[in-house]
Structures are given as structure tokens and as C-alpha cells.
Amino acid sequence: MKRMLVLLLGMAGLLTGCERAMHDMYDQPKYKPGAPSPLFGNGSAARHPPDGTLPAADGEFAGTSSGRMGRVSAPAPLPADGHPYPITMALLQRGRERYDIYCAACHGLTGAGNGMVVQRGFPAPLSYLDARLVQASDADLERSIRDGYGVMYPFADRVDAHDRWAIVAYIRALQLSQRAPAEQLQAQDRQALDARKTP
């Protein structure tokens, strides 16, 4: 019986030691916001996000807790005079390739807003022929790709800046292809158009 009592007392002592170890796990050393730290070169424990990252208000309570439902755009410099890259055939081909991968599922191959996702019942985006998007600046289109717009998810983490601008150039080509004045076409293109009009 004495052995049993000693054993029980020993186990109780071990259990209290475990509880103390548990408290040590809960009360670990940590830095408070804004506290100094010798671990980093700038002497601060706070770390700044890497360049190019965007803060996001996400999750079920984002709208009610912060008032910023969806993505929060960080201000970024925009080109003052339109497209920052020369519009070349290579840029347009790259834009078409990226558009087909990332955009056509919703916006459709012609930009009419009738992609496969829409045909399956999801909300249709605006057609690129809509006057609002025709009149939108290149910077506005690039920003919408980068930060998202409405139900469209931001693509900044999947499509780099050069490719976003290539997509914008291709969108402009799609818009022009659907509404180019006939007098601006080259002679062979006008002939082909006239041949299609005659029965």
C-alpha cells in the first residue's frame, strides 16, 4: 500500500510538471507590435511586406468588419500616356496567349462576355465592346486585371505586369476587330469584306 501511495504521489508530481511545461508553451517570448528587435537590420520586429504584394480583405466577415469587401488596392504608379510598351506583333501574340489562358473562360474568345464559365451559369462579365470598356483607359484595364473587379478575382499573383499589359493590348485589338471602320481597312481586307457581303 505504501508503494502505491508513493507511486501516486510521484505521478501527481509529474503531472504538475507537465502543467508547468504547458504554461511555458503558452507564454512564449514574442515581440509586441512596433517593438525593437536585434534580429533584423533595421532594428524593428515589424516586417514590411515584399514589394508588389497587395493587402486583401478576404473571408466571410471582410465586408462587415473592415468595410472593404474584396481586394484593397495598394496605390501604384500608372503610365501617364497609355500603354507603357511598344505595341508589336510579338506583344499582341503574347497577349492573345495569356488572354486565352486567363481571360477567355469568362470573357469569351471574342471578348463578348460569353465564355465557357458563363455558358455554365456563372455571371457574365461586360462585353469588351461595351462603351464603358471601349472608353476605359489602358491603365484602368490593367488595374482591373491586377486587382480584380466585381466578382473577378485579382490576377496580380498569376499574371506579371508585362503580361497584363500584353493582355490589354490584345483586348484593344479585339475591340478594334469588332468595330473597325471599313475605310481604315487595307484594300485586300475591304475586298474580302465586300465578298462576304454579296450573296
Score class of each variant (00 low, 15 high):
residue 2 K to H: 09
residue 3 R to G: 02
residue 4 M to T: 14
residue 10 G to E: 09
residue 12 A to L: 13
residue 13 G to A: 13
residue 16 T to S: 09
residue 18 C to H: 11
residue 18 C to P: 02
residue 20 R to E: 10
residue 22 M to Y: 14
residue 22 M to F: 14
residue 22 M to Q: 13
residue 24 D to W: 14
residue 25 M to R: 08
residue 27 D to Q: 11
residue 33 P to T: 11
residue 33 P to Q: 05
residue 35 A to Y: 10
residue 35 A to S: 15
residue 36 P to C: 04
residue 38 P to S: 08
residue 39 L to G: 00
residue 42 N to K: 14
residue 43 G to H: 15
residue 48 H to D: 02
residue 51 D to H: 13
residue 54 L to K: 07
residue 55 P to R: 12
residue 56 A to H: 10
residue 58 D to N: 13
residue 61 F to Q: 05
residue 64 T to F: 12
residue 65 S to Q: 07
residue 68 R to N: 01
residue 68 R to F: 10
residue 72 V to Q: 07
residue 74 A to W: 13
residue 74 A to G: 01
residue 75 P to D: 03
residue 76 A to V: 15
residue 76 A to P: 00
residue 80 A to V: 13
residue 81 D to W: 06
residue 83 H to T: 02
residue 85 Y to L: 11
residue 93 Q to E: 15
residue 100 D to T: 11
residue 100 D to K: 06
residue 101 I to Q: 14
residue 102 Y to S: 00
residue 102 Y to T: 00
residue 103 C to F: 05
residue 105 A to W: 09
residue 106 C to Q: 10
residue 106 C to T: 10
residue 108 G to A: 09
residue 109 L to S: 07
residue 109 L to A: 08
residue 112 A to P: 02
residue 115 G to N: 05
residue 121 G to N: 10
residue 122 F to S: 06
residue 123 P to E: 05
residue 126 L to I: 03
residue 127 S to E: 04
residue 128 Y to K: 02
residue 135 Q to W: 08
residue 136 A to D: 14
residue 139 A to P: 14
residue 139 A to E: 14
residue 140 D to M: 13
residue 141 L to D: 08
residue 141 L to G: 04
residue 142 E to T: 01
residue 145 I to D: 03
residue 146 R to F: 04
residue 150 G to D: 02
residue 151 V to Y: 12
residue 158 R to I: 04
residue 159 V to E: 02
residue 160 D to L: 01
residue 160 D to A: 01
residue 160 D to N: 11
residue 162 H to S: 00
residue 164 R to F: 01
residue 164 R to G: 00
residue 166 A to E: 04
residue 166 A to R: 09
residue 168 V to S: 01
residue 169 A to G: 03
residue 169 A to N: 07
residue 170 Y to F: 14
residue 170 Y to I: 02
residue 171 I to K: 08
residue 175 Q to E: 13
residue 176 L to E: 15
residue 178 Q to H: 15
residue 178 Q to W: 09
residue 179 R to N: 07
residue 180 A to E: 11
residue 180 A to Y: 10
residue 181 P to W: 07
residue 181 P to A: 06
residue 187 A to C: 00
residue 188 Q to N: 03
residue 188 Q to W: 12
residue 188 Q to L: 03
residue 188 Q to S: 05
residue 195 A to W: 10
residue 196 R to A: 12
residue 198 T to F: 06
residue 198 T to S: 10
residue 199 P to H: 10
